[in-house]
Design a binder for these strands. Structure first.
Lengths: 74, 74
DNA sequence: CCGTCATGTATATTATTTTTTACATTGATG
DNA sequence: CATCAATGTAAAAAATAATATACATGACGG
């Protein structure tokens, strides 16, 4: 089991803000499988940059609104 | 040789805009190797989302200012 | 000319992401 | 209760990213 990545996301909220879009539907729109969406939502790992761009595009927002970087404190 | 990814970047320009920062220096700051930076600059592949966040952080800009998504035309 | 620094490049190897296949759980609905 | 849709999960395989090591080139200064 890999350590959780230092990136969180709001995909779940965005899906429901967009008419309760299912994982299936989102996955289909960006050319991924449902399992991959599920894994990303649960922070099993963070997606590739390309996948991140496509997800943001589906919801019409910036990448920063989908994924949040946890900086290491000063 | 893999096909070039549909993402371009402005790392090269950003480096020179920031005091001609070398690939070595950038790589060191984000915990990557010089070869990886070189490969990304030349679009051999696109970085992980985490790497992308760290690069943007170094230059103090949004991810969208470092990486540009080429949408498929209408 | 010689050495050094920055970069390009190549190959092999490791790590990470994604797919595929498959089964379990939960909530709604007939 | 049976069924269906949406989600969680798991293991193996495929695809992609990243490292390590190594050698080459051009620019630049001593």
């Amino acid at each position: 089991m890999p350590p959780p990545p230092p990136i969180t996301n709001t995909i779940r909220r965005l899906r429901f803000d967009h008419g309760e879009m299912t994982q299936q539907e989102l996955a289909h729109r960006i050319g991924m499988t449902r399992q991959t969406i599920a894994a990303i939502e649960q922070n099993k790992y963070s997606p590739s940059l390309e996948a991140a761009f496509r997800i943001a595009e589906v919801f019409g927002v910036e990448i920063g609104e989908v994924f949040q970087w946890k900086k290491s404190g000063p």
